[in-house]
Amino acid sequence: MQLEYFQLVDRILDLNLEEKAIRVEAQVPQTNTIFEGHFPGHPLMPGVLLIESMAQTSGWLLLGVLKFERMPILAAVKEAKVRGSVFPGELLTIEASLAHEGSGYAMTEAKIRVDGKLRANAALTFTLIPFPNADIRGHMDAVAKRVGFPQQALLS
């Protein structure tokens, strides 16, 4: 994770466009200024960042499903549950699946696991907008490369 840049997904492990599902990995840093305040002497990954990590995972799934023709923007968070604390240094496995693709919007369901145990889950809604400009599209391509987005998945 690069919390300073709000990049919460490290690596795409599996992107299955047939099943419309994705699995990624995210390493919570051992130290970060966030943990100095949340909380002093008892560092915890903030729940909102866990939700954001599920949103970003869903975002990669939607970018794949939409073949980078639309940009998913988080619009609603439903049924978000933080079932257990996430601590500095833990490795997250985050899964997301497409629950519904509507016209201009999509809904996903996502889960965070640590060592196979469920720590958080959420149902998320996204609006799907055209990329606002070529710079953002280029930026997404660069980040896609960094997280190992499987470009061959777009060919199928």
């Binding site: 619009a75 609603a76 519904h100 509507g102 016209s103 201009g104 919007y105 809904m107 809604t125 609006t127």
Partner: peptide
């Protein structure tokens, strides 16, 4: 518009269709 997405979702599911919201908008 955001609440309407939930309605569109429920309608899509109930009727097995895809409301063309983008086209309408």
């Amino acid at each position: 518009s955001l609440d309407f997405l939930d309605i569109a979702f429920a309608i899509d599911k109930a009727f097995g269709i895809k409301l063309p919201l983008e086209k309408w908008t």
